[in-house]
Design a protein around this nucleic acid. Structure first.
Lengths: 122, 122
DNA sequence: ATTTTATCTTGACAAGTGTAGAGGTAACAA
DNA sequence: TTGTTACCTCTACACTTGTCAAGATAAAAT
C-alpha cells in the first residue's frame, strides 16, 4: 500500500468526502498548485489501478469515486517505512524531531499526555 | 535535501561511521538485501553529486567518503513532508499512529514524558 | 438538429530511481 | 615481472512519477 506524493494529495481529499468526481479533485488540487485536469485524472486512474479507490457510481459522463482503503491502512506501513529509513527505527529520534519541528501546540501536548496516560493503563 | 529510500539506507550507515569506503557500504547493505557492488556505488556517486557526501581521503584505489549533512538536516524537511502528505499536517494523528505502531517501549514513554516536561518549561 | 461544453480516454514524454554489466587499472601476490 | 584481485568508471536500461495534449463523446444549450 505505497502511494506517491501526488497520490496522497488526492487521497487526502477523497478521504474527507464521501465521494468525489475528477473535476472536483482537480479543483481541490488547483487551490495549491497549477496542474491540468489531465494530470489529476491520470493520478486518479493510477489510484484506481492500484485498487485504492473505485468508481462508486456514474451519472451521465461523470464518474464518482470513493476510497477503498482507510487513512490508517496507508499511514501505518508508510510511517513505519519513514521510521526505518529516516530515523533508523529509533522512535525517540522521531519524537524529538516532532517536538523540534515547529513547536507543538498546547492542544497537541495535552493530546500526547492523554495518549501516555491511556498507554500506561494497559 | 530530498533523498531516496536507497540513498537514506546508505546515509544511515555513513552517519554512524566517521568515514567509509564503497565496499564497506556494500557489505553493510548486503546484510539486508542482495545488490551488487555496482548498484551501491551508483547510489554513492549520486549522493556525491547531490553534495551530501564527499570524498574525504583516498588511499591507493580506495576512496573514503564522509557525510556533508547531519541527520537532522535531512530528517526535518522530510518529516515535515510526511506530516503534510500522510497526515494532512495533523500532528495528533501522527502521534497516535506512532503509539499504535508497535507499542512504544517503557523507555520511549519515559523519553516522551521528559520531552513534554522540558517543553512546558519554555 | 446543431453547436457548445464538460468529462473521459489514450498516448506520450522527461526526469528520477533501482539495478547491474563491461571494462579499466592500481595494488598486491607469486 | 607478470598474473590476480579489488575497486573504480562508464554506460545502460526498465520502471515509476509527474506532466500534459489530442481526440472522442455524452450531455446540455441554443
Amino acid at each position: 500500500m505505497k502511494l506517491t506524493s501526488f497520490e496522497l494529495d488526492v487521497m487526502q481529499y477523497l478521504w474527507q468526502q464521501t465521494e468525489a468526481t475528477s473535476p472536483e479533485v482537480h479543483a481541490y488540487i488547483t487551490k495549491t498548485r497549477d496542474v491540468t485536469y489531465s494530470t489529476v485524472k491520470t493520478i486518479i486512474d493510477r489510484l484506481e489501478q492500484k485498487k485504492v479507490i473505485k468508481r462508486h457510481r456514474v451519472e451521465g459522463r461523470t464518474i464518482y469515486y470513493q476510497t477503498l482503503v482507510t487513512p490508517k491502512e496507508v499511514q501505518k506501513p508508510m510511517l513505519k517505512q519513514v521510521l526505518q529509513k529516516l530515523f533508523a527505527g529509533n522512535k525517540k529520534l522521531l519524537m524529538n524531531q516532532l517536538f523540534e519541528q515547529d513547536d507543538l501546540s498546547q492542544e497537541d501536548i495535552q493530546y500526547l499526555e492523554n495518549l501516555i496516560k491511556r498507554d500506561k493503563k494497559l
